[in-house]
């Protein structure tokens, strides 16, 4: 057990921080939501109901999508783009796609490599891009979840104000969707650029 904690301390610590933050977000969001309900003479909701509301769901997944986008972009960009002197970047001479020998795939796979690394067909291609593929799928999945929870919230507000509701496709071109999307994206891109350049000069 002690060895497990020691060998996996990085994700474990961040898992605990994630759960504490999510709990705090849900409690603060619940309180805020019910304060707004009372201000509009509307019924309040239980904590359990708030956890499965579009209000909380959108707040959660709109941040998730931008984090997965950050890693998807970082994985993709760092194949070709470099920052000389940064330990977040490859060396300039290593820019570009890496060889099968370096990835230990196809005929360069080793005895203890995963089965898909050895096959040499589409499954090996999938395996050698699996980090990018899975991160990209999580990005598009959470962005989709943001769009439908945001759509539901948007239409609920439209109904409250006796205004017309919109279709899901209609919501995707509304400023509400793009303001929530881009406010998260800009901070992720700023963070990546900052990390790349700061690590050249700062220790």
């Amino acid at each position: 057990m002690r060895l497990f904690l020691k060998n996996n301390s990085l994700p474990l610590v961040f898992t605990v921080l994630f759960l504490i933050s999510l709990l705090g977000q849900s409690l603060a969001g619940w309180k805020l939501h019910n304060d707004e309900q009372l201000a509009h003479d509307s019924p309040t909701v239980s904590y359990a109901r708030y956890l499965v509301s579009s209000d909380f769901g959108e707040a959660v997944v709109e941040n998730w999508q931008s984090e997965y986008l950050q890693f998807t972009c970082f994985i993709l960009a760092t194949i070709w783009l470099i920052q000389r002197g940064s330990n977040e970047s490859k060396k300039p001479e290593d820019a570009g796609l890496e060889s099968d020998a370096k990835h230990l795939i196809g005929r360069h796979a080793q005895r203890n490599s995963p089965a898909w690394a050895k096959l040499g067909d589409w499954r090996t291609t999938f395996y050698s891009n699996s980090l990018l593929i899975v991160m990209g799928l999580l990005f598009f999945g959470s962005w989709f979840a943001q769009s439908v929870t945001g759509w539901t919230k948007y239409n609920a507000e439209q109904r409250d104000h006796d205004e017309s509701t919109v279709s899901w496709a209609g919501y995707l071109v509304r400023p509400d969707f793009w303001e929530k999307t881009l406010q998260n994206w800009q901070s992720e891109f700023l963070a990546v650029a900052t990390m790349a350049i700061f690590t050249v000069y700062l220790r």
């Binding site: 497990f4 060998n7 996996n8 994700p11 474990l12 898992t15 499965v52 509301s53 579009s54 769901g57 959108e58 959660v60 997944v61 998730w64 997965y68 899975v134 999580l138 999945g141 959470s142 989709f144 979840a145 769009s147 439908v148 929870t149 945001g150 759509w151 539901t152 239409n155 609920a156 899901w168």
Partner: peptide
């Protein structure tokens, strides 16, 4: 190694569960 593999799958299952949950919530409540 089994514990590390379990952590890996946790981080696959956790976001997928959240995404599916809130996609369903969003679609069901509209």
């Amino acid at each position: 190694m089994t514990g590390t593999r379990a952590l890996f799958w946790l981080y696959v299952v956790l976001p997928v569960a959240g995404i599916v949950l809130y996609a369903v919530v969003g679609l069901a409540h509209n």
